[in-house]
């Protein structure tokens, strides 16, 4: 489904990704772990098409498309979804209106008709429940004045509405207390599907207690230096990231 080969990317003069390889198959959940500054978020951003990164070499294929050639909205319409580490507040942009515009843009690109108001409302209420979110959220501006936990839950709510083929969760656990973490993880697990893949980017192993990965990768200095099963996450938890410098050097 996703095939990343030799990906190198710069921010300004600095090379952040230094030859990253990753293969993600349908239905698989991959965790990417690594210390601060290892390039985890950069990788998530490059996949989603954020500006400010210059890809110098390598390729990213997504369902047969050259992902790097596409605009962010085109990637989203193909089924890519990024759950932001810092969801952006959009004052004055109503949450319902926003979700409807997003869902209809995606449906239209697939040749599907727009959802009518009643079906859309029903779908929203059903998905809200899974995330333990209140209906009043639909009337508020997107993320505006939301607590940290509400913002993260709203990301997963959007994911539930847009039903992506590949979801990238960028540090979704950061800033969440244990109860909020459990709700978010339940929401993510409810979306696990043989046709839906996920990349879970995280600093801590904690999230992986709730969202169990099929594969764990260690990212350091812009490339993956070790890959393994879920037991690798536990090993990292025990040993910390100190040993990585020697391996990566």
């Amino acid at each position: 489904m996703l095939s990343v080969k030799g990906l190198r990317a710069n921010v300004g003069e600095n090379e952040i990704l230094t030859g990253l390889d990753l293969e993600v198959g349908p239905g698989e959940v991959h965790a990417i772990m690594g210390p601060n500054g290892s390039g985890k978020s950069t990788f998530a951003h490059v996949l989603s098409g954020r500006e400010g990164y210059e890809v110098t070499s390598g390729s990213v294929q997504f369902d047969g498309h050259d992902l790097l050639e596409l605009e962010p909205e085109e990637r989203a319409r193909l089924g890519l979804f990024l759950a932001f580490q810092y969801p952006v507040e959009l004052p004055g942009v109503n949450n319902t209106y926003f979700l409807k515009a997003a869902l209809n843009a995606i449906r239209k690109s697939r040749g599907e008709s727009e959802l009518d108001a009643v079906s859309f409302m029903r779908l929203m209420k059903e998905r809200l429940k899974v995330l333990h979110l209140d209906d009043s959220l639909l009337k508020r501006p997107v993320n505006f004045g939301f607590s940290g936990g509400e913002k993260k839950r709203n990301e997963i709510f959007q994911m539930a509405m847009l039903e992506p083929r590949l979801a990238i969760l960028d540090e979704t656990d950061s800033g969440l207390d244990i109860d909020a973490l459990r709700i978010v993880a339940d929401g993510v697990n409810a979306l696990r599907d043989p046709a839906r893949s996920m990349i879970v980017v995280t600093h801590y192993q904690r999230l992986l207690d709730y969202i169990e990965p099929d594969h764990v990768h260690v990212l350091a200095r812009g490339r993956i230096i070790r890959s393994g099963g879920k037991e690798l996450a536990l090993e990292l938890e025990e040993r910390g990231y100190g040993w990585i410098d020697e391996v990566a050097a």
Binding site: S48, A76, R77, V93, F98, A102, A105, L162
Partner: peptide, 17 residues
């Protein structure tokens, strides 16, 4: 970028903002 990452075209995203 946030709006575009949800599939909304750049033009519509600007108008929404």
């Amino acid at each position: 970028f946030y709006l575009r990452s949800r599939g909304i075209s750049a033009g519509l995203a600007r108008r929404m903002l």
